[in-house]
Lab assay of single mutants.
Amino acid sequence: DLRKKIVDLHKSGSSLGAISKRLKVPRSSVQTIVRKYK
């Protein structure tokens, strides 16, 4: 699940930009998912 991957990467200390590059999703999507998770 993409959300879980993003949250896991964020927990392990990756920046939003790094996560978005790695998973090839827009940075804004990463930000939204991380914000919802918090």
Rank of each mutant, 00 (worst) to 15 (best):
D1H: 11
D1W: 15
D1A: 13
D1P: 10
D1N: 12
D1G: 12
D1K: 11
L2R: 07
L2T: 06
L2H: 05
L2A: 05
L2N: 05
L2Q: 06
R3A: 13
R3Q: 09
R3W: 15
R3V: 14
R3Y: 15
R3M: 11
R3P: 06
K4P: 03
K4C: 11
K4G: 07
K4T: 10
K5R: 13
K5E: 07
K5D: 04
K5P: 01
K5G: 04
K5Q: 12
K5F: 11
I6M: 04
I6R: 01
I6A: 03
I6N: 00
V7A: 08
V7F: 10
V7E: 07
V7H: 06
V7T: 05
V7W: 14
D8S: 12
D8P: 02
D8Q: 13
D8V: 10
D8E: 14
L9I: 01
L9A: 05
L9Q: 04
L9N: 02
L9K: 00
L9Y: 05
L9M: 14
H10L: 13
H10G: 01
H10P: 00
H10N: 03
H10M: 11
H10R: 04
H10W: 15
K11V: 10
K11G: 05
K11C: 13
K11M: 12
K11W: 06
K11Y: 07
K11N: 11
K11I: 13
S12M: 12
S12R: 12
S12G: 10
S12A: 13
S12D: 08
G13Y: 02
G13I: 02
G13D: 01
G13S: 02
G13P: 01
G13H: 03
G13E: 01
S14Y: 15
S14R: 10
S14A: 15
S14G: 06
S14I: 15
S15F: 01
S15D: 04
S15P: 05
S15E: 03
S15A: 05
L16K: 04
L16T: 09
L16P: 08
G17W: 10
G17R: 15
G17L: 11
G17D: 10
A18V: 08
A18C: 11
A18D: 11
A18G: 06
A18Q: 13
A18N: 10
A18L: 08
A18H: 09
I19V: 02
I19Q: 00
I19P: 00
I19R: 02
I19G: 01
I19A: 01
S20R: 04
S20Y: 00
S20V: 08
S20Q: 03
S20E: 02
K21P: 00
K21Y: 05
K21I: 08
K21M: 08
R22K: 13
R22Q: 14
R22D: 06
R22S: 11
R22P: 00
R22H: 11
L23K: 01
L23V: 03
L23S: 00
L23G: 00
L23I: 04
L23P: 00
L23A: 00
K24I: 04
K24L: 08
K24H: 11
K24W: 05
K24T: 05
K24F: 06
K24G: 14
V25A: 04
V25M: 08
V25Y: 05
V25P: 00
V25H: 03
V25Q: 04
V25D: 00
P26S: 12
P26A: 11
P26Y: 05
P26L: 06
P26Q: 07
P26N: 08
R27H: 06
R27S: 04
R27P: 05
R27F: 14
R27D: 01
R27W: 10
R27Y: 14
S28N: 09
S28A: 10
S28Y: 11
S28G: 09
S28V: 08
S28E: 08
S29E: 12
S29H: 14
S29A: 14
S29K: 15
S29M: 15
V30Y: 01
V30D: 02
V30A: 04
V30R: 04
V30I: 10
V30C: 07
V30Q: 02
Q31E: 12
Q31P: 03
Q31R: 15
Q31I: 13
Q31Y: 09
Q31D: 07
Q31K: 14
Q31C: 13
T32M: 13
T32R: 15
T32D: 12
T32E: 12
T32S: 13
T32H: 13
I33H: 05
I33A: 08
I33T: 06
I33L: 05
I33F: 01
I33N: 03
I33Y: 02
I33Q: 03
V34D: 02
V34Q: 01
V34A: 03
V34N: 01
V34F: 02
V34T: 04
V34I: 14
V34P: 01
R35V: 05
R35E: 10
R35A: 10
R35H: 10
R35S: 09
K36P: 00
K36T: 07
K36W: 14
K36D: 09
K36A: 12
K36R: 14
Y37T: 04
Y37F: 11
Y37E: 04
Y37M: 08
Y37R: 04
Y37N: 04
Y37D: 03
Y37H: 06
Y37K: 03
K38H: 15
K38P: 03
K38I: 12
